[in-house]
Nucleic acid binder design. Structure first.
Lengths: 232, 232
DNA sequence: ACTAGTTTGTCAGATCCATGTCAGAAAAAT
DNA sequence: ATTTTTCTGACATGGATCTGACAAACTAGT
């Protein structure tokens, strides 16, 4: 799974902070709090969160100064969240480097959507193109790319489908019929041991030693599975 | 200083369009208008504006569809500007790739600030007007210009769209349907191997040796991809 | 330990199917 | 009207897939 995004909430009002914390945690963000501007800047510099939620009314420094100060260090997305809702204030916030400006009382869903938008924009691609890794094997679902010992190897369509199915569930045993079903399509109607041939060529391409494969294991009487010994 | 930024306003209401035109012109933007969704997409593809202001209520296509359609071609900033102001509508807009969502009645200064914010963000990010480079191939999205071995080469519209899609995601495999979708438009309804012909002429123009292409690789059973070996 | 029975490993063809290739028709742009 | 671009269809080719046959490994019963 993707790593959690971290969010720094800079807000002096404890009730608001708590509420935000609950919303954000529910969306699987890692949240850290600061209760004044100074603290906010310090914490950001120390931990470099993925996004900052910033209240403008802070006990010590003005929120806009916090904004500028952070901006001088980094392009981290900053979402201003405040009761100051006149047009001039909004304009000022945006001109000072904020990435979005949400007025209290805010709708949770809208705020979350705007946060997602900011994070999406910064991280470039939204998708999960992280490779699955099992031992020396690395598989990128999106790009349909497989590396073994950090070298790209060429798999046929069926080989890729089978390996991908096994790697998405390391350790789980699949029957030949299950592998046929999802790798070769439900319309396949033939010899179920065709799978064995594909497994054979996969093993060859993965340099499995004859007789005692390290990754793709046979389950006599059932089917095949990927060893989960090497999953970390 | 920079050239003027160009803005495409997609809005069916003539009064609103006029008002926006006055505001935007006063801020020294070049403005073009479209009065329905179809026209909007066409004009964007033809002129590649720097930003799109999009009304959701259009006579023909749904605004969100316009949004998605444009998104499949480009990362141009899209600001949705509409009377639909429930939270769910805002969330939906942002999830569909919009960069901001401003509700009518809007404040001119706020809108302009949000537009500036979008433009600032995009121009700040690394590759906007910079060409994408993969090996000897160089592609400028804005100017729709392609160079191979530093020599400009002439591509047809479809060829450009396909190459651009591949180059924006080196290494990623695209199915023929995906390529058709964004290169030839969603209304295309025909033989999917038409793509092969375009790939063939692209390869010819890129001087690919017969039999073992260096850049545009086939993924039998799936589609095509651009080799990422030469990306650096 | 031996054997019969079952299951998987291995691999060489035969077959199948996806892609490469290109010419000409159809459509669109100029 | 002429040129350019797009699309379709046909054929050839080579790689991918499937099958089947045999060898090897394993299992269980005697």
């Amino acid at each position: 799974m993707n790593e959690k995004s971290t969010i720094l909430v800079v807000e002096d009002n404890l009730t608001t902070s708590k509420t935000l914390g609950i919303f954000l945690a529910a969306e699987n963000y890692d949240v850290e709090f600061a209760f004044n501007g100074h603290d906010g800047i310090q914490r950001y510099l120390a931990n470099r969160h993925d996004l900052i939620l910033l209240d403008l009314m802070l006990p010590d420094v003005d929120g806009l100064q916090v904004c500028q100060s952070v901006r001088s260090h980094s392009d981290v997305p900053i979402v201003i969240l405040t009761a100051k809702s006149t047009e001039d204030e909004i304009v000022e916030g945006l001109e000072n480097g904020a990435d979005d400006y949400v007025c209290k009382p805010f709708g949770a869903k809208e705020l979350l959507a705007r946060i997602r938008r900011c994070l999406r924009q910064k991280s470039g691609t939204p998708g999960k193109n992280q490779p699955i890794r099992v031992g020396e094997i690395e598989l990128e679902l999106e790009r349909r790319l497989v590396k073994f010992m950090n070298e790209p190897i060429k798999l046929t369509k069926s080989e890729f489908e089978i390996l991908s199915m096994l790697m998405r569930n390391p350790g789980r045993v699949f029957t030949r019929d299950q592998l046929i079903q999802t790798a070769l399509g439900p319309s396949f109607d033939g010899y179920d041991r065709t799978i064995d041939t594909h497994i054979w060529s996969l093993r060859k391409k993965l340099g499995e030693p004859r007789g005692n494969p390290k990754y793709i294991l046979s389950e006599p009487g059932i089917g095949y599975r990927l060893s989960d010994q090497h999953a970390h």
